[in-house]
């Protein structure tokens, strides 16, 4: 593979462009690389949650009644409201990306703060939901002294349902908290003037991450909350 070395058009220019990293030829290559990297990262996130959804599916097959009984302990209204809140945060995130594309520094920060606001509402609601589960003895963390004492444990599989409920929503919430850390970083980045119409991969990738977190919830909502809505009450429904 003998190759002749020759200057490629535009090669010399990029030393003058502060937005271009040394190892890229031009801004387009750089932007496409960042987008591709983020999508690959999301593919792995997808498989990560996918493993958990797979386990969920198997156990739901094993314990249809237990799953129903467990689901009926959840508050669907709160779950639906939280879904809407998270969708709104996705919308403001899309608006932040738009602001970045149009070069509005102020718009980016405003929209990200709004996104963080909706995200916080979601997490606060989640906190109260968790607390309610704690009060009703629905936390299956035996090594922490939190025994699963609710009467629903008589139904085989209900305790497993709550293992998955906390595992999946907990992992989702953790991703949101990580997202908050990234938001702060993106805001600092924006304030430093590093986000321009030519180079805003940071905001775009942040958006992709946040939308992904939203998608996870889009699946969690029907699979955890709506499941028990239509069956007969199995046991111990107390809302």
């Amino acid at each position: 593979m003998v190759s002749s070395s020759a200057a490629v058009a535009g090669h010399d220019d990029h030393h003058h462009n502060p937005h271009l990293a040394h190892h890229f030829e031009d801004l387009q290559q750089q932007r496409e690389s960042h987008a591709l990297g983020m999508w690959l990262f999301l593919a792995q996130e997808f498989m990560f949650f996918g493993g958990m959804f797979g386990a969920y599916t198997i156990y739901r097959y094993f314990y249809p009644v237990g799953w129903m009984a467990g689901s009926q302990q959840l508050n669907v209204t709160i779950g639906a409201a939280n879904t809407v809140v998270l969708l709104c945060s996705s919308f403001t995130m899309a608006m932040a990306v738009r602001a970045a594309q149009l070069g509005s520094k102020k718009g980016v920060i405003q929209q990200i703060l709004l996104t963080m606001f909706f995200g916080s509402v979601f997490l606060v609601v989640k906190y109260f939901e968790y607390y309610e589960k704690f009060e009703h003895g629905l936390m299956p963390f035996s090594t922490l002294g939190l025994e699963f004492t609710n009467v629903v444990k008589e139904v085989p599989g209900a305790q497993l349902f709550f293992s998955f409920y906390f595992g999946m929503t907990g992992m989702h919430a953790l991703h949101m908290v990580i997202g908050f850390g990234l938001f702060v970083w993106v805001i600092i980045h924006t304030l430093q003037g590093k986000v321009t119409p030519e180079k805003h991969s940071v905001v775009e990738n942040m958006g992709l991450y946040w939308h992904f977190v939203d998608i996870v919830w889009i699946f969690l909502f029907p699979l955890l909350y709506l499941l028990g809505l239509n069956g007969e009450p199995v046991i111990g429904v107390h809302h």
Partner: peptide, 14 residues
């Protein structure tokens, strides 16, 4: 879950 699957919706609450 095999043993439990045969019972779908129980007719008694508990």
């Amino acid at each position: 879950g095999a043993a439990h699957r045969t019972t779908m919706i129980p007719s008694v609450p508990v």
